[in-house]
Design a protein around this nucleic acid. Sequence first.
DNA 1: CCAAAAGTGTTCCGTCTACACCCATGG
DNA 2: CCATGGGTGTAGACGGAACACTTTTGG
Lengths: 227, 227
Amino acid sequence: MTTFYSEFQKVLLSVDCIIFGFDLSDSKLKILIGKRNMDPGRGEWSLYGGFVRGDESLDESADRTLRELTGMHDVFMRQVGAFGNLDRDPGERVVSVAYYALINVKDYDEKLRQKHGVEWVNIEKIPQMYSDHNIMVSRARKLMRQKMKTEPVGFELLPDLFTLTQLQRLYEAVGGETLDKRNFRKRIKEMDFIEKTELIDKVSSKRGAALYRFNKKAFTEDKNFKL
Amino acid sequence: MTTFYSEFQKVLLSVDCIIFGFDLSDSKLKILIGKRNMDPGRGEWSLYGGFVRGDESLDESADRTLRELTGMHDVFMRQVGAFGNLDRDPGERVVSVAYYALINVKDYDEKLRQKHGVEWVNIEKIPQMYSDHNIMVSRARKLMRQKMKTEPVGFELLPDLFTLTQLQRLYEAVGGETLDKRNFRKRIKEMDFIEKTELIDKVSSKRGAALYRFNKKAFTEDKNFKL
DNA sequence: CCAAAAGTGTTCCGTCTACACCCATGG
DNA sequence: CCATGGGTGTAGACGGAACACTTTTGG
């Protein structure tokens, strides 16, 4: 390979994933973190991450890392940014590119989760983490909240079929404030791409709640979203 | 130095700067670009950039790069993101972190500009550029627009003293739509941190226009912005 | 029979938008 | 004296926020 820039120093590149999930049982937004099992920083809480290979783009590396952890593919992911302070890694210099992902918790194989030693932690109760990971999380959260408000990505955090109350609880968890039920439902009704099905969910309530579905196809043609 | 991760491949890191300026003479938003003077891609239009040194953080590297080009410091800069597609650099692999900056055009020494061979180009008329630089610009522009709407950073693009018409033209250029003069001024009047001075600008009009100033101190105490 | 969640409209208020004329001055 | 940009207020439309009761059914 031709080398044009040989006089410059190279650095190690890693990706770190902020994996958001929505816990339907307690209506809390959570992320996956675990105890670091390598030096430096062994034993500290940490995001799941890995090094970027020479044969993959940053996005591909993030995809692969997430797949390693969860076995899932075609997951909604967005870059948070690059983190490159000199002191961010006590060993040698590592620049890390953070990504956030939105996954449906129920699609995540519990076995895999345990194997990797990660757990779902309430976004409001994230412990002190390794290096700059807390900063990554707060930046990711801000971006994710912004995205959720302006684009229909919240459905990535829910099952294919969901009740309106579940959807509302999700938006409440993300926005950090309770919402008015009637106003919320009024807005939903105006979005044709959120379709009511004939199915009834009898788990979460005695009376039963209508199940809804996000029609991605209908959205691309439609295009008006605001929550 | 202790080496923890020696088995992983390292990559070259660069920063690229999207430098926004507002041209008061034609009320257009512009960025600084030049013809690339190194291989690969010699002669193609390109953002100004440079490689990250081993002894500086990413933010510091972006600062330094901007200072090299403009001689300016304490400039408003924000990271756009990391760009790391495999094919983005025809030579060897280079991952680039893009930053955007907002500068007051008149603070930029014309001699320095010519020395570096860069010019101000209307944001609406950016030519095809080297590698993924066009993508960087469009991403930067989106972030910058968002920032301008929600935080008082537009003043970075103007002289310390400015007329309301200049401010309005700036927001029109950024938003891509003309604004109503009376509504615009009404909003300004509600922001106490935009202070009217006793000074009159006689350059841009015969009658003369009041000059305003952004009071940064008053803002941090105040905190309500919406344009 | 009652606890618990689902479902459903209307009114009010504040915000945003549209809109037109007089003023001051340099040339 | 007129062309040019500076400066000012109001009314109507619209969208967002507040708000309470009935329904269904499992236990």
